[in-house]
Amino acid sequence: MAELITYRDAVARGLAQEMRHDETVHFIGEDVAAAGGVFKATKGLLEEFGPERVRDTPISEEAILGAAMGAAMTGIRPVAEIMFSDFLATCWDLVAVEIPKTRYMTDGQISLPLVIRTANGGGLRFGAQHSQAVENWAMSIPGLKVVAPSNPKDVIGLLAAAIRDPDPVLFFEQKSLYPTKGEVPDGEIVDELGVATTVRQGSDVTIVALASMVRRAVEAADELDSLGISAEVIDLRSLVPLDTNTIIESVKRTTRMITVEENPRLCGWGAEIVSIVAEECIWHIDGPLTRVTTPHIPLPSADALEDEFLPSVERIVAAAQKVVQ
C-alpha cells in the first residue's frame, strides 16, 4: 500500500520513525515542539515523544548546534533544526569549524552522529535573508555530509539514513516543496546516502538537478520531448557523498550535460560536477557542459523578480536546446 502525503508531513513521519526506532534520537530547535515548527513540519512529535525528546530552544543557534554536538559525542543521536538555512551563518563556527573537523583532529576519538535539518531555498517571496540556497556552502567543507531530498519518500528515507549515519549530516529541506505531495509506501523507509536517482530516462542530454530543481528538470524534460529532444534527469539527492558514477555513466551515453542549481552562480555545486565530467569523460562530450543557476545576485523578494531569476522550466529547456544543437 502507499499513500499520498506532503513533503512537510514526510519530515514529521521520518523523525517519528527514527525516534521510535532508536530512543537515543532527540530533537531540538526553535518552535519545533509546542508549535510544531514554523513550517508545521514537526507537528505531533511533542505529543508522541514528550518534552524530554522534543525540546524547544531559545533563539540561540550556537547553543542549539553546540548542544547537538556535545550530545552526539557522548551517546545521543540529536537532530537539530536551524529554522532557515540562512541562519546557519549565525552558527557557522559550529557548522564549518567544530562539527566537521572534530573527528579528524582527534584522529577518530570523537564521533558525531548528528543531523542538522534546515529549510533551504527560495520561491516563497521571503526576500534575500530567508531564501538563500546554501547547500554549496556546506559542500565545500570536508567532514560534512550534505543531503537535499526532492520528494516526500526521499525525505523519510534519507532523513532516516542521515540519522542512522555515524557522521554529521546537513539535511536541506527545500521550503517551497513543503506543500507538495508524493506517494509514500507504508512501513519503515530507510534509504542510503550517496546514491543518485535517475528519475527520467533519456538519450540526448543529461540534466543533473537537486531538490526543487528536480521537478522543474522533469517538467523541462517533458517539454523537450515534444521538441524532439530526449532528456535524462538525475536527482542527485546528496552532494556529499556524491554519486559520480551515476552522472558519468549517464553522460557517456547522452554525451551532453546541464546542471540545474538553485544557488547563486559562483562556486555552485554544478561547477564541481562540470569539472569532474570535464576531467573524467571529456572525450565523450558533444556539447558545452552548461550550468543553469540563479544569477549571482541576492534573491529579490517581489514575486515577479523571484520567479524570473530562480532557474525556470523555460531556462532549462533553452539550455538543453542549445547544448544539443
Binding site: 553546540g66 550530545a71 567544530e98
Partner: peptide, 12 residues
Amino acid sequence: AHLPIANGAAWS
C-alpha cells in the same frame, strides 16, 4: 565554541 558544546555533553 566549546561552551555550547559542553552544554551538549551535560545534556547527554
